[in-house]
Every structure is written in C-alpha cells, then in structure tokens.
Simulated assay, not measured.
Amino acid sequence: MAVTSAPIKVDVATDQLISHAAHFLGKAKKDLVEVAVREYIEAHRTEINDGIRAALSRLDGSSASAVSLLADVPVDQLDEYGGMPDAD
C-alpha cells in the first residue's frame, strides 16, 4: 500500500527553524517534523490521556453530551443555540 502524506501549515519563523534544523541534521524537513511530533506526543502522553479522560467523563451516551463536547458548549446552554431535536 502506498503511503500518503498530508500538508501541514506552520508560520514562516517555524518553517525557517525546521529548514535550518533539517539542513544541519542532514534530514528531510518532513522526516524531522515527523520525529519531532512523535517525540512531543510521547513526552506529553500523560496530559493527552488526561484530556481524553476528561472528555469521556462528559459523555453520557446522549446526543446532547456529544454536541456539547464537540461544540465546547455546556449542555445546559444548548437551548440558547437552538437546542437538540426531540428523539423519535
């Protein structure tokens, strides 16, 4: 299976840092970014897992809790934005 890639956007200053580091390390920019992101995620795995647990604790199986989590709007404020349709 062919490996596909997806573009990412960074500001000019960050792109320059990536370019310089890649050049002096003798790596392709994409390889440097891949390793850097994987190392960053591994270094912050506890924080990421804590965020996942906090998000899951807000879900109760209802559509309202899912919309609340995705929209970052408290469940009790959903009616102010049109509410949730009645279940059939």
Rank of each mutant, 00 (worst) to 15 (best):
D88S: 15
A6M: 10
A64M: 00
N49A: 09
T4M: 14
A43T: 08
A54E: 02
L25V: 01
G26V: 05
I48K: 05
G51S: 13
D79E: 10
F24C: 01
E80M: 13
A13S: 11
L78H: 02
D86V: 14
I8T: 11
L25W: 00
D60M: 09
M1F: 09
L78A: 03
L56I: 03
Y81I: 14
E80I: 01
S5E: 10
G61A: 06
D15G: 04
M1E: 06
L32G: 02
Y81F: 15
A36I: 03
I8Q: 10
D79G: 00
E47W: 07
A28F: 03
S65G: 04
H23I: 02
A55M: 11
V75F: 02
T46R: 14
G61H: 11
P7H: 05
L59R: 13
D50M: 12
T14G: 05
I41T: 03
I48E: 01
V33W: 02
R53C: 05
H44K: 02
I41L: 15
D88P: 13
I52A: 06
G82I: 08
Q16P: 02
A2N: 07
H44M: 00
L78V: 08
G83D: 05
D88T: 10
D86L: 06
V67Y: 09
D72K: 15
I41F: 11
V73K: 07
L70W: 03
T14D: 11
A13D: 14
A71D: 05
V33T: 09
L59H: 00
D11W: 00
I52N: 07
D31M: 04
I52Y: 08
S62F: 06
K29Q: 09
A21H: 01
I48Y: 09
K29I: 01
V73M: 08
A6R: 14
T14K: 07
T14L: 15
A6S: 11
A87W: 02
A71I: 08
V37I: 15
E34R: 10
V33Y: 01
A66L: 15
K27G: 00
I41H: 04
V33N: 01
F24D: 04
F24G: 02
D72F: 04
D11A: 15
E80H: 05
L56K: 13
D88F: 01
Q77C: 12
T14C: 11
V10H: 09
P85G: 14
A22C: 12
Q16F: 02
S19H: 07
G82V: 15
A22F: 09
I48G: 00
V3L: 15
A71V: 08
G51E: 11
L70E: 10
I18D: 04
V37F: 06
E47Y: 01
A55S: 13
L59M: 08
H44G: 02
D11V: 11
L59Y: 10
E34Y: 03
A54F: 00
K30S: 13
V12D: 04
T46Q: 12
S19G: 00
V10I: 14
A22M: 08
